[in-house]
Design a protein around this nucleic acid. Structure first.
Lengths: 191, 191
DNA sequence: TTGCCGAAACTAATGCCATTAGTTATAATA
DNA sequence: TATTATAACTAATGGCATTAGTTTCGGCAA
């Protein structure tokens, strides 16, 4: 009940990730992946549903890795301390896995159930960390969305070389986070 | 000193923009553009330096359009009012020109002088609008970077269907902006 | 041990794409 | 009217994804 030993999905994804991180997601082709794995590209269809299938699997894989990183960064903490740690973790992840992070946002169909399911734990983690702020459910969701926007925006612009100015980027990130946290406090005290 | 009348760059860019906005940037190929213009694809090389050249020109064009939108939105105002208006303008632009906005961030070489030069007026506009906050130069730059991160992040995630939850997106945006503005005020009063 | 079977590799072929080289046609100028 | 520069064209190449059909081999059952 088992064929030639050959290739398994984890090593396939790992190899694809290496290409993505080194040369960008656009360099991840079935041809380049097959070459690195020392097989012919049609053979990849035994493991993955074409290029779109590969991209979908990479998106899911990337979301899982990101979630793992964030869990580790938050490490049971909550509130401001946790948000600072998670934010650093998020940006560090993107810096060390630029291609895999790119894959995360490049799923051929973002509404794919498996992709959605891979993203959900991340949202849940942030919601959990926000609990001590005593926001109602809807507010929490908005604030979570905002935090994700801000982290994604920063990381994405940094990755794409969008920050032209000669200005320390870690300082920008810290100030951005602190400003957002201060804003949450300021708005909270208005009730 | 002039040949067959043929095609000019503005209509070429406009046509490319239509494809991008309707089907996404990945659908902008020399083949699809040539077909829509009713010419053969090699003829495009008379106007544009291959696909990379087209992408570069689209990035510049998109930045100019975005700048125009923001100028119009700010309309001489400054401070919180201007930032709210510009933020709405930014997101509205991305919603109505998703492909062109995508092009903006997909320049083959973001450090290309022409691309940098097209982005600079946007940064300058934001800096100008931030003047009444009385921040020093470095703070202003960090805050500008933060605002851009947050707007890009929100717009980009929204565009890519990254917001899975059934939650009003305009409310998320408003809260995000208000929180950031509140944060700026809160941090400012600490001095 | 031997034979079967399924899975994973393969080869061959197709069609789309970008790109290059070389050619033709035309509009303005001299 | 003849020249010239420019923008269109055709033809050809090579890389890519994808499909169809074939071969090979590891494990399980007889």
């Amino acid at each position: 009940m088992s064929p030639r030993i050959g290739l398994d999905l984890p090593t396939l994804l790992q190899t694809a990730t290496e290409i993505a991180d080194q040369k960008g997601m656009e360099a991840v082709t079935l041809a380049s992946l097959a070459q690195k794995l020392e097989i012919k590209s049609p053979s990849l269809y035994n493991h993955v549903n074409g290029l779109n299938g590969l991209r979908t699997k990479m998106a899911i894989f990337g979301l899982e890795q990101l979630h793992h990183t964030l869990i580790h960064a938050a490490n049971g903490r909550s509130g401001d301390v946790a948000i600072r740690a998670m934010s650093r973790g998020y940006v560090t992840f993107v810096r060390s896995h630029p291609g895999l992070y790119e894959a995360t946002l490049q799923a051929p169909d973002p509404s794919d159930p498996e992709v959605q399911q891979a993203g959900k734990p991340i949202v849940d983690l942030v919601l959990q960390v926000l609990e001590p702020y005593g926001l109602n459910e809807e507010e929490s969701l908005h604030i979570t969305r905002g935090l994700r926007s801000l982290l994604h925006g920063f990381a994405s612009l940094e990755q794409k070389g969008g920050f032209g100015l000669p200005l320390n980027r870690d300082e920008s990130l810290d100030l951005l986070i602190e400003t957002y946290l201060a804003g949450i406090q300021a708005k909270k005290s208005k009730y």
